[in-house]
Write a protein that binds this DNA or RNA. Structure first.
Lengths: 205, 205, 205, 205
DNA sequence: TATGAATGAGTTTTCATTCAT
DNA sequence: TATGAATGAAAACTCATTCAT
C-alpha cells in the first residue's frame, strides 16, 4: 500500500518475513553442517551464509546445538515417513524396496539430509529427543526384518543385525545418489540394492 | 614414499627415552580423538591424558593436525598390511577372508584404530599424504575385486562398487568387534561376513 | 527547575491511554532495578514484565539509562517533599521526626524507592540532573542540622557529618521497613530512631 | 645467571613470575570493581589494567565471578582478623574501639577493600563461601554486642540491631577514610566514632 | 502509539600455539 | 627435551537499540 522498495514487493517482502529468515538459517545450517562439519560451521559463517546478522540466529534458536537438533529431527522425520507408510505392504522385500526407493528420492531432492542423519557422527551433540527419534527410525527397519524372518524371507540371526546390514548398503546408495555420482540410468544403485537384499535374504538357491 | 618419522611411531624407535613421551602422546591422542572427537580433544586434555605439559606436544608434532595425520597414517598402514601380504592367495574369497580375519584381530587388539580409519569423518583435517594412504588402501581392496571378477567369483559391475559394499559390511563387523559387543563365540560376525560375501559374489544358484 | 515529562510519571497524566504503557514500564523498571539490579534488568526482561514489546520502551524513553534517571528523580522527589514541607517546624528534633515518619510511610507504600535512592550504587548511571536532585535532598537534611546546631540541639562539628550520620541510621530503618521485616508494633524502628537522635544530639547528660 | 633483559633482573623478573601476574590481576580487579563496578569492569579492561592478555585472566581464575569472590573473601578476612584478635578485651567499648581503629588502618592502607566488603551490592555475584564468610564477620560484631548487653554497656533490644547501627556509622568513617577526605588530625572520625558508641550504649545520663 | 524481527557491537570464555626458562 | 605461563585470535552468545510495518 505505502510505496516502498519495489524489489521487496516483487520478491514477497523477503527482508521482514520471519518465516523466511528461519528457513534460510535452516538451509544454511544444513548445507554447512554436512559439508564442513558442525564445529567448522561457526556462527559468523552460518550467519553470512544465511545472509543475516549473527545475533539473528538466536532469535530463532536458543543455541547452535538446538539448531542442529531441530534440523536433525526434521530430517529423521523425512526418512521415517515411508517406513510407517509402508506398514500395509505384506512382502518384506517389497516393503524394503519401497522404503529404499522413497529414500532415494529424498536423497535426490535434498542431498544434505542423508549425511546429516546417516553419516555424520553427532554423538555428543544430539539431545534426548533427537536420539530417540533416530532410535525409532532404526526400530522401524528392525520391525520389518522381524516380519521378514517370520515369513522366512530373511535369514536366521538377530533382526537388528540384518537391519544394520541392509541399512549400511542402502546408505551407500543414498550417499552416492546425494552426491549425484550416478546418471539416472546407471545400473549401480539397482545392483547394490539387489546385493543388499541378497545379503539379508534367506538364500533360496 | 618418504617415511621419515612416521615409522618411529610404529616401530618405537624412541624407546631410549624413559618417558617415551611421543608414544604416550600418540596413545592419548588415539583414545581421545576416537572417543570424544578431534575438536573436543583439546590440547590441555591431550597433554593431561598423556601426562605431559601442553608445550611438550609441540616438541613432537608441529600441530594438533599433524598429530592426527601421523596416527591416522600409522593406523592405515596397519590395515594395509594384510592386503599386500595376501597378494599370493589365489582365491578372491579366501583372500578377503584372510584380510577380514586379520582386521578383526587388529580391532580386538587396538579398538581405536577402527574408528579412526573407517568411522570418523576427518575430511577437512587430513593432509594429502594421509588421503593418498587411505586411497591406496581402498585401491588394494578394489584390486582384489578386479581379480575376483576376472575369475568369475565376483559379480559383474564396477569393482569399486563391490569393494565399497564389502567394506561397509566388514566395517560393521569391525565396529562391533572393537566395541566388544560380541562374546568370542557369537555367531553374528561370521553371519555378517558370509552375508558380505553373498553381497558381492556372482550368484551361484 | 524545568519539570517537563518527569511529572507525568508522578501525576499519571497519561491516564487517557487504556494500556497506560508508560506507567507499567516505570513500575516494572522500579521493581526490576531494585531487585535484580540495573544490568540484570535487560530490556527483554523489562518489556515482558511490563507486558509490552521491547520496542515500546523506546517510545517512552530514549534509553534504558534515561528510564532509570526518570524513576530515580521521581523517587527522590518523594523523599524531598517532607523535607521542604516541614520547613515551618521549629524544633530540629521534631522536624527530623516528621521526616523520618513520612519516609517510613513511603517505604511501606512503595518499598522499591528506598533501595533505588538510598541503597543502590548508581554512580556511573545517573545524569547531572539526577545527581543534583539527590544533592539537593542531602542539602535539605544538612540545612536541618545547621538549624539544629544554631539552637544547640545538634552536636558541634560539620553539619554535613551529622546529616550523614542521621541518614545512615534512618536508611537502616527504611530498608527494614521496606523489607517488611518488622510487624507494626515492633520496638526496633523506634529504638533505632531514638538512637539516631542520640547519635547527633548535643549530649545532655 | 644467563644474561637477559636488565630491567627484568632489576625488577625481579616481572615478565615470567607467575605470582606476580596473579597479584597484578587481583590489584587491577580490586581497583576496577570498586571504582566502575563489576559489570563495567570488562575483561578487556581488566586485562589491560593488569598489563596482561585477556586469556591470562583464565589461567589464574576460572571466571570473572571467581576472581571477584577470591578478592572479596580475602578482603573479608582482613576485616575479620581484629574481631577475633580482640576476643580477650573485656570491655565492649574498648573492643569496638580496637576493631574500629584497626579497620581504619586497613581503609588507609587499602582503600578499595572497604567498598568491596561494605558498600558494593554484590548480591547475585557472591558464592556460598563468600556469603558465609561475610555472615561470620557480622556474627562476630553481633557477639560483641551480646557481651556488651550482658555487662549493661549496650542498650536493650536485639543485639543484631545494635551491631547494624554501629556498623553503619563505622562504615561511614571507613568510606571517608578510604576516600582520604580527612587530614590526619581532622576531628570528624573521632566525633562519628563517639557518636556511634552513644548510639548503642545504654544511656548513662 | 505499538510491535517485534533484525542488528552488530560487545561480552565472557576457550584453546592452539609460542617461548623464556 | 620438557615445562607451563602467557598469548591473542576466535568462539558462542547477549542485549540495547532501530525501523518497517
Amino acid at each position: 500500500m505505502t510505496h516502498q522498495n519495489d524489489d521487496a514487493a516483487a520478491t514477497g517482502k523477503r527482508a521482514r518475513n520471519p518465516r523466511n529468515t528461519r528457513e534460510r538459517l535452516v538451509r544454511a545450517a544444513l548445507e554447512l553442517f554436512t559439508s564442513v562439519g558442525y564445529h567448522a560451521s561457526t556462527t559468523p559463517l552460518l550467519a553470512s551464509r544465511a545472509g543475516v546478522a549473527e545475533g539473528t540466529i538466536y532469535r530463532h534458536f536458543t543455541s547452535k546445538e538446538q539448531l542442529l537438533n531441530e534440523i536433525f529431527r526434521a530430517a529423521v522425520r523425512m526418512f521415517a515417513a515411508p517406513v510407517s507408510d509402508s506398514a500395509n505392504i505384506g512382502s518384506c522385500r517389497e516393503r524394503l524396496g519401497h522404503i529404499a526407493s522413497v529414500w532415494r528420492e529424498i536423497a535426490r531432492a535434498n542431498p544434505h539430509v542423508v549425511k546429516l542423519v546417516f553419516v555424520l557422527d553427532l554423538d555428543g551433540l544430539l539431545d534426548t529427543r533427537s536420539r530417540s527419534a533416530y532410535g525409532t527410525l532404526l526400530d522401524g527397519i528392525e520391525a520389518v526384518m522381524v516380519i521378514g524372518k517370520s515369513t522366512g524371507q530373511v535369514r536366521a540371526g538377530s533382526a537388528r543385525i540384518w537391519a544394520d546390514v541392509w541399512l549400511r548398503l542402502v546408505v551407500l546408495v543414498l550417499e552416492r545418489t546425494a552426491g549425484a555420482e550416478w546418471p539416472p540410468d546407471h545400473p549401480a544403485p539397482q545392483q547394490i540394492l539387489s546385493s543388499a537384499w541378497d545379503a539379508i535374504s534367506a538364500a533360496t538357491l
